[in-house]
Design a protein around this nucleic acid. Structure first.
Length: 431
DNA sequence: TCTGGGGTCCTAGGACCC
DNA sequence: TCTGGGGTCCTAGGACCC
């Protein structure tokens, strides 16, 4: 008999992070905004209770919310990233088998763990995480990941569970009843498109999907939906993948603070994204073989000329060197640029065909880079990363990066980076 | 005025080969 | 009027997730 797998999920993560260092925000409706203060990407319970949906544009927020004292925060990823690392470090105290899944979720394997003792163990885990980090978490445990997601959702929704819910078996009457109460649209992996089609076939609940013939599901949908169906019925199809630490593609893109038709301004943004991408590349010790630059107009402003275009270039050799990557990105933008006064809203740089930096394949047709050159490049890049790491991103940039350029982000409500910047440390006054 | 960013996986279909 | 079939590889795009 296999052990259970648990999903630990931070409650209203970004909103909870904001409250750790500003406890007076507890009880107030608090929403965190996307980049450029565009739309709501995280909500405290009070905001959910006001019926404000995820993704609501800031300018559509109802006046009633402000009357109730709504607090808006620009996203502060430096803070969230650091708080996430603290939560993960705490979780590692409870099991060596931990797989971070997103900034606020982790899978924990309890292989070989006494099932009867699991609920208490998880309850203890919640308590310690809250005490050490200030972040409330919920735990769902089950034989499969899809069921663990469901268990977690149940734990969050019902206060009687005190944040922990364990599904011991996929076939118990309690589990079947839970599946029957769960609309199929709320199952992990079932999105809007698939939901519509499932409804047409008379599949409305998680239980309907669990009982459907997997072969038939595969024929009508895909292997992905088939796996979801099997997981609901208790067969593990999605496994822990500890081998998968490094990304297969690195993407850096942003909407501009304001639209711009200025080629130099877009070039500046492309340089910044390329440099940032190269940094991420070095951090996971990969080299990129190709790169894609994308530009896009504002798709909500249909009265303006629209353009959405991208160009993919092969890099002359696999590289993680900022200068080489920036140069290639500039070249791509040059080829992409249309001199028609189109106002762009967003651009991005994608680094693709990543390979491991150590296992670099030598190209028969390319002379290998001389060792001295390579070492010089590596020293330069690590100096760059160190400076930007120590003194903050943007300390050393490639080419000019003007402050207040149109493409720079708007973030008018950002809280302090209390835990990662010396000059933003909180102060405590003793009464 | 104002509508996020970064990922993964899968499938269909075209190109090409024998 | 007829104009193979099967395999592989690659890419674009769909769908979903957080």
């Amino acid at each position: 008999m296999k052990g259970l797998i648990a999903l630990v999920d931070c409650n209203n993560f970004y909103a909870s992070c904001e409250r750790v260092f500003r406890p007076w925000l507890h009880g107030l409706p608090l929403a965190v905004l996307s980049n450029n203060d565009g739309c709501v990407i995280a909500r405290s319970q009070e905001v959910k209770d006001l019926g404000i949906a995820m993704g609501t544009p800031m300018h559509h927020l109802p006046r009633e919310a402000f009357e109730r004292g709504l607090v808006l925060c620009s996203s502060n990823y430096e803070l969230y990233g650091d708080m996430s690392a603290r939560v993960m470090a705490t979780l590692r105290e409870f099991t060596p088998h931990l797989e971070p899944y997103s900034i606020d979720e982790s899978w924990l394997s309890f292989e070989g763990f006494d099932r009867a003792a699991l609920p208490d163990h998880c309850q203890k885990l919640c308590g310690v995480v809250y005490k050490w980090t200030g972040i409330p978490v919920s735990v769902g445990a089950a034989p499969t990941r899809t069921l663990a997601k469901l268990a977690n959702r149940h734990a969050k929704k019902h206060t009687a569970t005190q944040g922990v819910f364990v599904i011991e078996s996929a076939n118990s009457p309690d589990t079947l009843a839970l599946l029957e109460r769960t609309p199929v649209s709320e199952v992990w992996g079932i999105g809007g498109r698939v939901t519509t089609r499932l409804y047409e076939m008379g599949i409305h609940t998680a239980l309907d999907l669990a009982r459907a013939n997997p072969k038939w599901i595969r024929r009508r949908f895909s292997v992905v939906v088939e796996r979801t169906a099997r997981e609901l019925a208790g067969t593990r199809c999605i496994d822990m993948n500890d081998a998968h630490d490094s990304k297969q593609m690195i993407m850096t893109s942003r909407s501009f603070g304001q639209m711009t038709a200025d080629r130099h301004e877009v070039a500046e943004a492309v340089r910044a994204h390329a440099a940032r991408g190269a940094e991420k590349l070095r951090r996971q010790r990969s080299l990129a073989c190709a790169l894609r630059v994308t530009v896009r107009t504002n798709r909500h402003m249909l009265h303006l000329p629209q353009d959405h275009d991208s160009i993919t270039l092969a890099l002359p050799r696999p590289t993680d060197n900022t200068f080489e990557i920036v140069r290639a990105a500039q070249r791509a933008l040059q080829r992409l640029w249309k001199d028609r006064g189109i106002r762009y809203q967003k651009c991005g740089v994608q680094l693709m065909d990543l390979i491991e930096a150590t296992g670099q394949q030598l190209d028969v047709f390319q002379p290998p880079q001389p060792t001295a050159d390579r070492e010089k490049s590596e020293r330069l890049m690590s100096a760059l990363d160190q400076l930007n790491g120590q003194y903050g991103r943007g300390t050393v940039t490639v080419g000019v990066q003007r402050q207040n350029a149109a493409w720079q982000l708007r973030s008018n409500h950002r809280s302090k980076r209390w835990s990662t910047r010396w000059d933003e440390l909180p102060t405590v006054r003793l009464q």
